[in-house]
Design a protein around this nucleic acid. Sequence first.
DNA 1: TATATATAACTAAACAGTTGGTTAAACCAA
DNA 2: TTGGTTTAACCAACTGTTTAGTTATATATA
Lengths: 215, 215
Amino acid sequence: MSKPEASHSPPEPESTESTRRRILEAALDEFSEHGRAGARVDRIATAAKINKAMIYYHFSSKDNLYREAIADICGRIAGDVAQHALAGGTLEEVLRAIASAYAELFRSRPQLRSIFLDELARPQGEILEVIASALRDSGAPKLLFGRLQEESVSGRMREVDIKQAVTSFITLNLGYVFLHPLIDRLLGIEDTGAFMEERKTALVDLFLHGVEVRS
Amino acid sequence: MSKPEASHSPPEPESTESTRRRILEAALDEFSEHGRAGARVDRIATAAKINKAMIYYHFSSKDNLYREAIADICGRIAGDVAQHALAGGTLEEVLRAIASAYAELFRSRPQLRSIFLDELARPQGEILEVIASALRDSGAPKLLFGRLQEESVSGRMREVDIKQAVTSFITLNLGYVFLHPLIDRLLGIEDTGAFMEERKTALVDLFLHGVEVRS
DNA sequence: TATATATAACTAAACAGTTGGTTAAACCAA
DNA sequence: TTGGTTTAACCAACTGTTTAGTTATATATA
């Protein structure tokens, strides 16, 4: 006595939050993989296992979905970075903690990388501001800036422009994350993961030596 | 006695090279501004002042046009960088020359930045190889690697992993170029151009101090 | 020398498929 | 019954690409 399968039987209605979440997650994957212009709404719908119209019901437009998907994940960045217990300690300890935090951020949230690169390639003020805020709220830039100022004032660090120094540390960290497809080819690096692991130590080492007072 | 205007009268045929050049230039602008998926063939045709069908006559497909436009401009990179007379001199002089070359490359060819970021975001082996080859052929990576090895062997440089050191120098240089929209926001930098100028000196300074033997 | 032919470059129009988005109706839990 | 959620079908515009026709020019041929 088998029940006739309905030609269309919608799954049990879920909570709004649950549906939105599924859409946001599918969207982030799609935008990460194809970029904003290359992403397809119907692919997002398929991946989220919903009818395409639901995307418009919840998010109004493709563009708005893009914005909200990024805002959603950026909202997690501060928490992710905080896991690395950025706090006091020697300058070296602080730098190591930040380097680890950044490396782990992009390792644990692989969609972030391509989306950040997209927004860097063609910045949209609004979205870039969301990203910048997230990184700011992580506390890392402020901690870095503050510590470098202390070191400078106390004479443990050479006289260098603090903004340039912070820029250098950030680019030393994020540089390989973002540029590794190119660098791997230029230098014949075959194990990106291993190189990234060594990198965390190497970049802190270089930076510390670069800023310390010559004895 | 006016001649009746033909309903459609194609202009005199130009040389193939001239038409192709116009298309390639318009294409590079379009791809740079909108990305591969966001670029529109009809916009490229309008910008190049040709009939859209000519793009297919000369380049077969949008994708092939993308590839050829990038290959075309990458073919110029080696020459651009060579303008900076990368040669011998002290390590500092070599590093300064390379830093200048990189900064000038992206300043003088503004389309490169977003296109490189696109390919870094979603690498296509073939195109990334064209880009890597262009940078390789510029001679800068080899010069850098070679000089750092010399310095290491002769004891003027600390014992550091050369690949990590080269990676650091490249990321110190290209990092700000690519990440400046974000860094400017994080650090409150208002004059990107001025900061970039200072950067050339600051990054070489940091790097040199970072690798030199402690006396 | 005049004429025919082939070819490359070019055109406007057409094409077929895809895209983001819309709509009216159905569904369902409270 | 109500209001929120969901559906299948639909839509106009857009997209990359193709087609058939035109023109200028070089070359072959009678």
